[in-house]
């Protein structure tokens, strides 16, 4: 079943005009913001395929900017998101994506934080406002944002994944989907886990305490920040 839920048929609540070009774009922007962990000071956004061709009429640029500002899909401020970004002195540049994209509606976000840290997201809007992230910080990993998702950056060493899953098991947290990618053997790796419940601070602290774990980030489109105000 591709659609599992009545609210994927009736919903989402969104500003128009297109569930894939507008609502999905807001969600890709939000995931970028969550991966960076804060509001970016600059963003370079590459649009591919239909996003590049029709972004202006669909407000895809406004929607992506709205997501970066932390707006939900139905936030009325999306229509002025670029002006608000300018007021907050966030520099956003849109360019045309070149090369292969996983889907006709794809955006690649390169975000920079005030302290110089960066985050990168390649996301596709797959219809009805639903999205699929295909790449995070250069790792080939997937998530939809529909479930509370833990993104773990770690060293590629034996036992790291076992340690992660042991802690989740210990806290009776169920994993619905999991993916792992690494830059190379014994290099940095990323593990992404979609959970059935929101991870608490204790759980996150324990995961961060594993040796060889570099960073643990939570992504969740249904989190309070991502909900309508």
């Amino acid at each position: 079943m591709r659609f599992k839920n009545v609210f994927s048929i009736i919903g989402p609540s969104m500003v128009g005009p297109s569930s894939s070009h507008t609502a999905g774009a807001v969600r890709i922007g939000l995931i970028g913001r969550q991966l960076l962990g804060e509001e970016p000071v600059s963003a370079k956004i590459a649009l591919y395929g239909s996003f590049a061709e029709t972004y202006w009429g669909h407000g895809t640029d406004l929607a992506l900017a709205g997501g970066l500002l932390g707006y939900a899909t139905d936030d009325a401020r999306i229509a002025e998101a670029l002006e608000e970004a300018a007021r907050r002195e966030i520099e956003i540049v849109f360019v045309k994506g070149v090369g292969m994209a996983p889907h006709p509606n794809t955006a690649k976000l390169e975000l920079t934080a005030a302290d110089g840290r960066s985050a990168q997201v390649l996301g596709a809007s797959i219809g009805g406002g639903n999205i699929m992230i295909h790449e995070m910080n250069g790792f080939d990993v997937r998530c939809s944002g529909e479930y509370p998702t833990i993104v773990v950056l770690h060293h590629d060493r034996p036992g790291v994944i076992a340690s992660l899953t042991a802690i989740l098991s210990d806290s009776e947290t169920n994993i619905g989907y999991m993916g792992v990618d690494r830059k190379g053997r014994s290099a940095e790796a990323m593990t992404v886990m979609e959970l059935d419940s929101v991870p608490g601070q204790d759980l996150l602290q324990r995961l961060r305490g594993i040796s060889d774990v570099i960073e643990v980030i939570v992504i969740n489109l249904n989190s309070r920040e991502a909900q309508s105000q």
Partner: peptide, 18 residues
């Protein structure tokens, strides 16, 4: 028309058919 003007709608099932 509200949808086309970037107003708030509920996708039923999509924005195009809202």
């Amino acid at each position: 028309e509200v949808n086309a003007s970037m107003g708030r709608i509920i996708a039923t099932p999509t924005a195009g058919s809202c």
